[in-house]
Design a protein around this nucleic acid. Structure first.
Lengths: 183, 183
DNA sequence: ACCTGAACACCGTTCAAGT
DNA sequence: ACCTGAACACCGTTCAAGT
């Protein structure tokens, strides 16, 4: 009982730190947010954060896990059979995470923790994409198409355009996939 | 004449700094290289670099310009009519610049100079891609296809895979574009 | 005009000391 | 176990002073 209490307290405190970091990282960008600012917003001292996280990158990973969990949940609740619609939904869902995407790609080069998260993320994303693609493709083409879909989504996120352009890109992508797959 | 001499000296010194920065940034990554290290390799003091560049990001832009100029020249000399071949050539040409690509996407969020270079780069890349695409597409689909090609190239660069996978991705992309364009 | 030594500001991280 | 105050190391940048 006291142990449970302790664990819960610890989890709550950790969650508060992650929540503060999440808002700040999304809004201002990872690099622009000192750990001292996260600490202030979470109501602790800067070094306290190092009791819960090994370094700033592990805090980033915790934020990414929280963000991804939320997005996956909303994606699971999505009633949208159309592939174009699904991709457009993902794009609008993740639009505000643009800086986070760039941060992951940048920090992954330095931090093993971020790199591991990134690899896991792409495994999940690939899985989801595969489930939405026509199943009659040969394996290597299916793999290739998954990658292409992922790359285009990432490209749209990190190189924002107006809604009409975005829609045309996604429509062209989906039409190409289907036409190409049947050729 | 003394003025010409001065200007040439200045350019040479500048070029030495850029050359040192280029090698270090490509090899170790922008974030991992202190400006003091660039200075050492270029044979000057750290603060001397600020006589030639406003800040570290402007030095990065100078490096990007040098790298791009070299790549454009080699691309111009490329005798390869096939679209798949051209894309694969670009991918192998830029493979070693992966960290630079991620750095640009990351710094662009903070530095206006990097953001400007990035915009200019995509304008050039779009132009080149357009010249390699079938000309019979409607304009907005042509734009969309250009973006897709760019996004896939960036994706391949920043998410390296083995040669066979890379080739299949590019082949699938090119086949999709052609099949989709004619559908 | 060009360059330097010395300093400033900021930040991630650590550590000895508290409860 | 959890948290803090104080300090360290590092780095981008500035500036007064030299030639």
């Amino acid at each position: 009982m006291p142990r449970n209490r302790r664990l819960r307290d610890r989890d709550e405190k950790r969650a508060e730190i992650v929540a503060a970091a999440r808002q700040l990282f999304v809004e201002r960008g990872f690099d622009a947010v000192p750990i001292s600012r996260v600490a202030t917003d979470a109501g602790v001292t800067a070094n306290t954060i190092y009791w819960y996280f090994a370094d700033k990158d592990e805090l980033l990973v915790a934020v990414l896990e929280a963000v991804l969990a939320d997005s996956l949940q909303r994606y699971a609740e999505l009633a949208e059979p159309d592939l174009t619609g699904r991709v457009l939904w993902i794009v609008s869902e993740l639009r505000s995470l643009r800086t986070l995407v760039d941060t992951v790609h940048s920090r992954r080069l330095t931090s093993e923790a971020v790199d591991n998260w990134h690899n896991g993320f792409h495994a999940v994303a690939d899985e989801m994409t595969r489930a939405s693609l026509p199943a009659d493709l040969p394996t290597d083409q299916l793999d290739a198409t998954c990658h292409i879909v992922t790359f285009v989504i990432e490209g749209i996120l990190t190189h924002p355009a107006d809604a009409a352009t975005t829609r045309t890109i996604v429509e062209t992508l989906v039409r190409s996939i289907i036409a190409g797959g049947q050729g």
